[in-house]
């Protein structure tokens, strides 16, 4: 028996919004530590890694490890039926070929359940080693979303250059060029609003705007985003989900031909 109950059901709605443009299907791997999902987009350029810890749920039970392959469009459709304040419960029997989502309104007056068929998906996991990155940038997630949106008007790709003075985002295209520089916040009153840079070596990398814009669909999950970069390795864009886990996106850098 698998059962995971979340009073803050809107978290699951937001998680689906954050992954459904990038992935069409994915496997939710559930064990007694929680729920994990790892999947690459169809072109194998980016990867989504989601972790929701068991202790972040209001009730969590997983008697046997279970891998549930799901069509994410279908999951998104079902979660759209949940109210923002609803409690969401996912449950499945051992070896089941369906999963059930139960939504309860705050006053318990409305209870809905939706049963969805599971899929058998080929598991293709990448081993991602713990990495020390040359630069990590923490900044307000809404600011990062704004920068990605604004710069994608200028070109298909964006250069992110991090030095100890700050971080510069640039794009160049037919209409011209755009540069956005963010300085490190001098005095941090509210950490959520600060730009904080930790740098061992300066790094400049180029990434596809389209994917960065997909990643920013996670903005509502966290007030802050962390970008981790080293020369010639994938960028990591991490949104921490309060008290329960994180969603990380990995994106391969563009390479000069």
């Amino acid at each position: 028996m698998f059962e995971a109950r979340l009073l803050r059901g809107s978290i699951l709605k937001k998680v689906l919004e954050a992954i459904k443009d990038l992935l069409t299907q994915a496997t939710f791997d559930c064990d007694d530590s929680g729920i994990q999902l790892q999947a690459m987009d169809n072109s194998h350029v980016s990867l989504v890694s989601l972790q929701l810890r068991a202790d972040g749920f209001d009730k969590y039970r997983c008697d046997r490890n279970i891998s549930m392959g799901m069509n994410l469009n279908s999951v998104a459709k079902i979660l759209k039926c949940a109210g923002d304040k609803d409690t969401v419960t996912m449950k499945a029997q051992d070896n089941a070929d369906t999963v059930t989502f139960v939504f309860e309104s705050p006053n318990q007056e409305k209870v809905s359940d939706y049963e969805m068929k599971l899929m058998n998906l080929d598991l293709e996991h990448l081993g991602i080693p713990e990495t020390e990155y040359s630069c990590t940038i923490r900044m307000p997630s809404a600011e990062f979303a704004r920068i990605c949106r604004d710069l994608s008007q200028f070109g298909d790709s964006m250069v992110i250059a991090c030095t100890k003075e700050g971080v510069k985002f640039s794009a160049t295209g037919e209409i011209g060029s755009a540069n956005i520089k963010l300085a490190q916040t001098a005095s941090v009153d509210k950490e959520e609003e600060a730009v904080i840079i930790e740098m061992d070596e300066p790094v400049t990398l180029t990434f596809a705007c389209q994917y960065l814009n997909y990643f920013t669909k996670a903005t509502s999950l966290s007030p802050q985003v962390q970008l981790s970069m080293s020369a010639d390795v994938p960028l990591v864009v991490e949104y921490r989900i309060q008290d329960i886990g994180h969603i990380r996106y990995y994106l391969a850098p563009k390479i000069e031909d």
């Binding site: 980016s46 293709e124 996991h125 990448l126 081993g127 391969a252 390479i255």
Partner: peptide, 14 residues
């Protein structure tokens, strides 16, 4: 001209 490398070029299959 820039090209995009696939991710499995950086990480091994688990």
């Amino acid at each position: 001209q820039v090209a995009q490398n696939p991710l499995p070029q950086y990480y091994t299959w688990a």
